[in-house]
Design a protein around this nucleic acid. Structure first.
Lengths: 172, 172
DNA sequence: CGTAATCTTTGCGGATTTCGTATCAAGGGG
DNA sequence: CCCCTTGATACGAAATCCGCAAAGATTACG
């Protein structure tokens, strides 16, 4: 299991930047600082984090666990799939007629889809796809995605080379 | 430090799927299995991973350290920036005239740029940007990126909502 | 074939970290 | 004013991490 406690539930909560009730930000400065620490090294010990953010080891541990349970962050290994396997990867721009959500949910349910985001601009959705090979990619795009009800059109961007991939928005 | 050993160096090595010399894949099945374990839980203990992949704790530890040093994978906390801060995030499609690499390198050097990938299709590059606010986003796109030599045109897709974000290509 | 050289795995022991639990302080309600 | 919830700390026991030296495996070469 990715997390160590209660089942993950649905990570898509209405989690705004601030909790409307009780006014406090959903994430205070300390939690932000903890996340920054873990963005640098996901395995950094709780005691070291505590020293950096001014909290006891146990307090850090509890906060981290809550952040994981709430789905605010996940601690995982990330790779360049193109490097690791000999797979095909692509970004897909999608235009939808009618409600976006059903389409987005259907895409989210596909295991080959790693990333789904609603956007403003000439595409309604951007989705990233990781596949075994060309045949697999073709099948996912042409058979499974283009046939989804509501999908008006798609445009594909096959990945040639990943140049940068970071998660350090905190540190700058 | 993100990693525990020699300095990170430049992560952009010519890391193909297979090591040209000595023919063996850069990543054997065991390392793949280790990565899969860490994709589920980046903090899973080495002993547990060893039991899962059939290796001793020390062997797993050394392999993980090498994978980190080589830049094949990173173990980090990932979040939805839109959730964590009140930031603006966008994907940018870019068209370039001439050599792609200088432009890609310049983008890679920008701290606001989290993701740079070369693609086939109607864009040459896709880059993901994380900004503090609208002003910041505007400045990065219009002042810093559009003025890069070689950039012919850009198209922006401002993120409205992140629906899915996973790193589990291994487990299916 | 040997054998050297290199790389990988393994087996420890000690230092460190994690984890569960108990305790304490600070707010809300009722 | 008391009860209940939330969050931080303290602390001992158990598990984990880490460095190191020995053993094993693989490759290159004579």
């Amino acid at each position: 299991m990715a997390s160590r406690s209660t089942d993950p539930k649905d990570p898509r909560e209405p989690r705004g930047s601030r909790d409307p009730k009780n006014g406090r930000p959903a994430l205070d400065d300390v939690s932000l600082a903890i996340i920054e620490q873990l963005q640098e090294d996901g395995r950094r010990p709780y005691a070291a984090i505590g020293k950096a953010v001014g909290l006891s080891e146990a307090a850090v541990r509890q906060r981290v666990q809550k952040l994981l349970d709430q789905g605010v962050m996940q601690i995982v290994a990330v790779t360049d799939p193109l490097t690791v396997g000999f797979r095909r990867q692509a970004m897909l721009g999608i235009n939808v007629e009618g409600d976006l959500d059903p389409v987005a949910d259907a895409l989210t349910a596909m295991s080959e889809v790693e990333y789904v985001v609603m956007t403003a601009g000439s595409f309604d959705l951007l989705v990233e796809i990781v596949c075994e090979d060309d045949d697999h990619l073709l099948e996912v795009i042409n058979k499974r995605i283009r046939s989804l009800p509501g999908v008006r059109s798609t445009e594909s961007f096959v990945y040639l080379k990943l140049k940068k991939q970071t998660y350090m928005w905190g540190s700058r």
